[in-house]
């Protein structure tokens, strides 16, 4: 009784489906996607990223606007904005500074100090961490000393550094070195302790000896942590450098900022600060980029 009804029902609906069905299914491969559809798809796939960029720009603009309003109306509400330079004043001193060879020299000198101090820290810290992680005796000898020295902030080393090194330049590089050395060492060591022992075993039963295991397993396995150490180390290097330059420097962006305060050039204070921020951001982006180059297996 019910079956004829069912059959008729499907017969009725069939043509409707057949008519509507193939039409949209055939068209897309027939014509190549137009620029419009391509752009639309690209937009759909990258929506989250675009959103983040848009919000980021808006938030930076809002920050500038608030800064502008606080300074033009010289707001005093617990903190005093009476002497704080406005964004426009900072921009004016920026356009002046980029034509001033002295300002560029300050920046170049700071970068050179970072490069030297940080590179030395990486050259010493990474191999030392690897060796400490592999050889117990080295670890037992060096670890206690490192643990005592590690909590001393690099700034506290300034007087000692001045005594130790014949020139100011060397002592500043030394302080930058110290600032980045410990994060690099500690993270490398941490990476070594987390190496999966099964991977070491796998290498051993494929015929790997001590040196190959070190090069092919321990080192690459520790790389993510080494790069964490380098990123943190770079941040601390800038902190230490600026402090050292403010105290004992004659040149450098930290010195520039401090000098601006002494010379009552308030716009230059903010300019120096922003320059430090941009340089710090740039150097950590460089490290992140290097990390992606060195560890292609980590990228999505």
């Amino acid at each position: 009784m019910s079956s004829p009804a069912l059959v008729r029902h499907s017969e009725d609906s069939m043509p409707a489906i057949a008519e509507a069905g193939p039409a949209p299914a055939v068209t897309p491969p027939a014509t190549p996607p137009s620029f419009g559809t391509f752009a639309l798809r690209w937009y759909r796939l990258n929506r989250a990223g675009l959103r983040a960029i848009a919000i980021g720009i808006i938030s930076l603009l809002a920050f500038l606007l608030v800064w502008h309003l606080l300074t033009t109306y010289r707001v005093v509400f617990f903190v005093r904005f009476t002497n704080v330079p406005s964004p426009l004043a900072v921009y004016a001193s920026f356009t002046k500074a980029i034509h001033d060879p002295k300002f560029l020299m300050h920046i170049l000198l700071s970068c050179r100090r970072i490069l030297m101090g940080f590179s030395l820290a990486a050259i010493v810290g990474v191999p030392l961490g690897l060796i400490m992680g592999r050889f117990k005796l080295v670890h037992e000898i060096i670890f206690p000393v490192a643990e005592v020295l590690r909590p001393i902030p690099a700034i506290a080393w300034v007087p000692m550094a001045i005594m130790l090194w014949p020139t100011n330049e060397q002592s500043i590089v030394f302080i930058t070195f110290l600032g980045s050395f410990f994060p690099i060492l500690v993270n490398t060591l941490h990476g070594m302790t987390l190496v999966d022992p099964v991977l070491v075993r796998a290498a051993q039963c494929l015929g790997a000896r001590e040196r190959s295991i070190f090069r092919e397993v321990y080192f690459p396995a520790s790389l993510p942590h080494i790069f964490t150490g380098l990123t943190v180390g770079m941040g601390v290097a800038w902190v230490s450098l600026i402090a050292a330059e403010m105290i004992s420097g004659q040149y450098g962006i930290g010195y520039f900022t401090w000098e601006a305060y002494s010379l009552v050039q308030y716009a230059d204070i903010a300019l120096g600060m922003i320059a430090i921020g941009v340089l710090g951001l740039g150097s950590s982006l460089l490290i992140r980029g290097a990390g992606q180059l060195v560890m292609p297996w980590r990228s999505r």
């Binding site: 099964v198 075993r201 000896r209």
Partner: peptide, 25 residues
């Protein structure tokens, strides 16, 4: 030769480099 439950492939090596490892050694 040994095969482990946790696969234990070297994550930093491609499939071919993993297979090559013993020959490289």
């Amino acid at each position: 030769g040994m095969v482990f439950q946790q696969y234990s492939l070297f994550p930093w090596k491609t499939v071919r480099e993993n297979v090559e490892f013993g020959l490289k050694m």
